[in-house]
Design a protein around this nucleic acid. Structure first.
Length: 309
DNA sequence: AAAGCGGGGCG
DNA sequence: CGCCCAGCTTT
C-alpha cells in the first residue's frame, strides 16, 4: 500500500554486489572452508550481538566443538562458560539443542533444506534463510535488521524501517530479490550478503556514510532529500539498569566463575546496585526454569557443572 | 503485534 | 545517557 518503489532493482543489484566484492570484511565464517556448522554457530551468536564481540567466542567455540556432535555431547556448563558474555544465554542452550537435533534427525550433518533448518531450536526465519544461503548457496530471501533498513532507504525512501518486520517489508524484499534461477542463484546469494554488509558498514542506522555509498545515486531516500525518521520509525531502546535481564545476567556471571554456590550466598552476593531480594529470587527461579542453572540441595550451579567441595 | 530476553560500546 | 546490534520464543 505505502512505499512502493518506482525504482528498478536491477542497477542496484549490479552496483551493490560489485561493491561487496571489493569492500567485504574478511570474516572467518565467510571463508570458503568454513563448515555449515560454523555458519550456524556464527548466525546464532550474531542474533543481537555485534560482530566484534562474536569473533573471539566463535573461534573458541569452533576450536572446542568443530562438529555438531561435539557440541551435542559437551557439558552445558562448558557451553555457557564459552558463551561468556555474549548475552541471551538461552541462545547457547538452544544451539546445543540444535546440535542434538542435528545428530538425531540428520546424522550429524547440518540440513540444507530451509524448512528442516527452521525446525531446529533457536532457528527462526532469518537464521534458516541465512544458513541455506551462506552455507549451501541456496537463493533464499534473507531479511535481517540491516537489510530491512537498506531496503527502506533505497527502495521505499524512508529513513528507518520501523520496529516490527511487517508483511509489507517481506513483500518488498521478495520484489527486489534477484531472479533465483538466473545464474544458479549466485547473484541472489551475493545480494543478500551485500545488502547486509552495506547496512553494517555504510548504511548504518544512526549516521549513514552516504558519501561513501556505492548506490547513493540510486537511493530513494537520498533522492528525497534524506528526510529524518518519523516518531513512528524511531525505536524505543530497552531499559537495562534494574531490569530482570540485568539480574539474570549477574547471576549467570556469578555461576560462570565456577563450582557451586550456596543459594543464599548467590542471591545476597550479587554485585548489583539494587537489593531487591524478591527480584533476585524471581530471576533465579526463571533461570532454573529455563535450564540455565541447576539446584542441588541448597546449592546453585551451571547445569552439569562438576560439584565443588 | 507485543513483550521478554544481555551486554557493551559509541556519539 | 539514549541508541544500536546478522532475532527467537511465547503470549
Amino acid at each position: 500500500m505505502t512505499a512502493r518503489t518506482a525504482l528498478s532493482p536491477e542497477p542496484v543489484h549490479h552496483t551493490l554486489t560489485s561493491w561487496y566484492h571489493r569492500a567485504a570484511r574478511d570474516l572467518p565464517w565467510r571463508r570458503e572452508d568454513c563448515s555449515a556448522w560454523g555458519v550456524l554457530v556464527s548466525e546464532t551468536m550474531l542474533q543481537q550481538t555485534p560482530v566484534a564481540r562474536v569473533l573471539p567466542r566463535w573461534e573458541e567455540w569452533m576450536r572446542r566443538w568443530p562438529e555438531p556432535a561435539d557440541t551435542a555431547q559437551a557439558p552445558l556448563a562448558e557451553i555457557l562458560t564459552v558463551w561468556d558474555r555474549l548475552g541471551y544465554p538461552r541462545r547457547a542452550l538452544r544451539l546445543q539443542q540444535a546440535a542434538v537435533a542435528i545428530v538425531e534427525r540428520h546424522g550429524g550433518q547440518v540440513p540444507q533444506d530451509v524448512d528442516q533448518l527452521r525446525a531446529l531450536p533457536g532457528v527462526g526465519e532469518y537464521t534458516a534463510a541465512a544458513v541455506a544461503c551462506f552455507a549451501f548457496d541456496q537463493p533464499e530471501v534473507v531479511v535481517d535488521t540491516n537489510i530491512r533498513r537498506v531496503h527502506a532507504r533505497i527502495f521505499s525512501g524512508q529513513a528507518l524501517p520501523g520496529k516490527t518486520f511487517t508483511a509489507e517489508q517481506r513483500r518488498l524484499a521478495r520484489d527486489v530479490f534477484p531472479d533465483p534461477q538466473a545464474d544458479g542463484g549466485q547473484l541472489a546469494c551475493t545480494w543478500n550478503i551485500a545488502a547486509m554488509e552495506l547496512g553494517a558498514l555504510i548504511c548504518t542506522a544512526r549516521s549513514p556514510a552516504c558519501s561513501a555509498c556505492p548506490v547513493a545515486k540510486l537511493c530513494a531516500w537520498r533522492l528525497a532529500g534524506s528526510p529524518p525518521p518519523t516518531e513512528e520509525q524511531k525505536t524505543r531502546g530497552q531499559s537495562w539498569v534494574g531490569t530482570d535481564r540485568q539480574v539474570r545476567g549477574a547471576i549467570m556471571a556469578a555461576l560462570r566463575t565456577g563450582g557451586t554456590t550456596a543459594r543464599d550466598d548467590l542471591l545476597y552476593g550479587l554485585p548489583l546496585p539494587s537489593a531487591d531480594l524478591d527480584q533476585r529470587q524471581r530471576c533465579l527461579e526463571s533461570l532454573l526454569a529455563d535450564g540455565l542453572a541447576e539446584q542441588r540441595e541448597a546449592r546453585i550451579a551451571l547445569p552439569g557443572a562438576h560439584p565443588m567441595c
